[in-house]
Simulated scan of single mutants.
Amino acid sequence: MENVMNQPRKRPAWNSGKLVGQKAPLKLKEIWAIRLRLQLAEDVRKLALFDLAIDSKLRACDLVRLHVRDVTHGAQIAPRARVIQRKTRRPVQFEISPSTRDALTAWIASRRLPPDAYLFPSRQHDGAHLSTRQYARIVKGWVRSIGLGEPSYGTHSMRRTKASLIYQRTKNLRAVQLLLGHTKIESTVRYLGVEVDDALIMAEQTDV
């Protein structure tokens, strides 16, 4: 009995009671629903963060560490940017759409951020960037605001959203692989959740 009492208790699994797996990407109508709410609220910070998260397709750890100089060319927001991914140490490029450039311009001007400053400074710690935990809470707020189930969405939803839309329109896995910065096409296949049904639909649409 004493041996049993002295045994350390097993900790519950980290995912006990939680829904795990791939996070769902946002649909176009959901993107615009969140964007409209941010515009009406005149929240220039979150609008810039939201738009750049969609365009960049970056992991949360890379997005929050961006500096102003990473997205600017001189005094202007650049149409394209290039960063080194923390996970793979490989470069990845992304486009910055006109609407995102407008949002970033308004945000940078509102805070008068210099080129060497973090693009999204932390509001809790001077000199630090927005943390991935803080970013995750912001994403949950966006999802909640339009009535989506929080467990199904997260920061990876932002990374997957535009990549998924591009794949749906083009079925070009190689292009999506490059945009996500994946080293292997198999990673892109798993990330997008490409299934046999996708292959069959493409086959059915191909006449020979």
Score class of each variant (00 low, 15 high):
1 M>K: 10
2 E>F: 11
3 N>K: 02
7 Q>K: 10
8 P>S: 06
11 R>Q: 13
12 P>H: 10
13 A>Y: 11
13 A>D: 13
13 A>H: 15
15 N>C: 11
19 L>D: 11
19 L>R: 14
21 G>N: 09
23 K>F: 08
25 P>S: 11
25 P>E: 08
27 K>Y: 10
27 K>W: 10
32 W>L: 14
33 A>P: 05
33 A>Q: 12
34 I>A: 14
35 R>I: 13
35 R>N: 14
35 R>W: 14
39 Q>N: 12
40 L>Y: 13
41 A>H: 12
43 D>W: 13
46 K>V: 09
47 L>Y: 09
48 A>P: 00
53 A>P: 05
53 A>E: 09
54 I>R: 09
54 I>C: 06
55 D>R: 05
59 R>D: 01
60 A>G: 03
63 L>Q: 05
64 V>F: 04
65 R>M: 09
69 R>G: 01
69 R>W: 01
76 Q>G: 05
77 I>N: 01
80 R>C: 12
83 V>N: 02
85 Q>C: 07
86 R>G: 12
87 K>I: 04
87 K>G: 03
88 T>H: 07
88 T>C: 07
88 T>L: 03
89 R>L: 13
90 R>E: 13
92 V>K: 05
93 Q>D: 02
95 E>R: 00
95 E>H: 00
96 I>H: 00
97 S>M: 14
99 S>Y: 05
99 S>G: 04
100 T>V: 06
101 R>G: 11
102 D>H: 07
103 A>I: 04
106 A>I: 07
107 W>C: 01
108 I>S: 01
109 A>I: 00
109 A>Y: 00
109 A>C: 03
110 S>K: 02
114 P>W: 00
115 P>C: 02
117 A>C: 01
118 Y>N: 00
118 Y>S: 01
119 L>K: 01
119 L>E: 00
119 L>M: 02
120 F>E: 00
121 P>G: 04
126 D>Q: 14
128 A>T: 01
129 H>Q: 12
130 L>W: 06
130 L>S: 08
130 L>T: 06
133 R>C: 09
134 Q>R: 08
136 A>T: 09
136 A>H: 10
137 R>D: 12
140 K>S: 04
140 K>Y: 03
142 W>T: 06
144 R>Q: 06
145 S>N: 15
145 S>E: 15
146 I>R: 07
146 I>M: 04
149 G>H: 12
150 E>V: 06
150 E>T: 08
152 S>P: 03
154 G>Q: 09
156 H>Y: 15
156 H>A: 13
156 H>I: 12
158 M>T: 01
160 R>M: 12
160 R>I: 11
165 L>T: 02
165 L>N: 02
166 I>E: 14
168 Q>M: 11
168 Q>C: 05
169 R>M: 13
170 T>D: 06
170 T>K: 04
172 N>A: 10
172 N>Y: 10
172 N>D: 15
173 L>S: 10
173 L>N: 11
174 R>P: 07
175 A>N: 06
175 A>M: 11
175 A>L: 14
176 V>R: 03
176 V>Q: 04
177 Q>M: 08
182 H>D: 05
183 T>F: 10
183 T>R: 14
185 I>Q: 06
186 E>M: 09
186 E>T: 14
187 S>H: 08
187 S>C: 05
188 T>F: 06
189 V>A: 03
189 V>H: 09
192 L>P: 07
195 E>V: 09
199 A>M: 08
199 A>P: 00
199 A>C: 05
199 A>I: 04
200 L>N: 10
201 I>N: 09
202 M>W: 09
204 E>H: 09
207 D>K: 10
207 D>A: 12
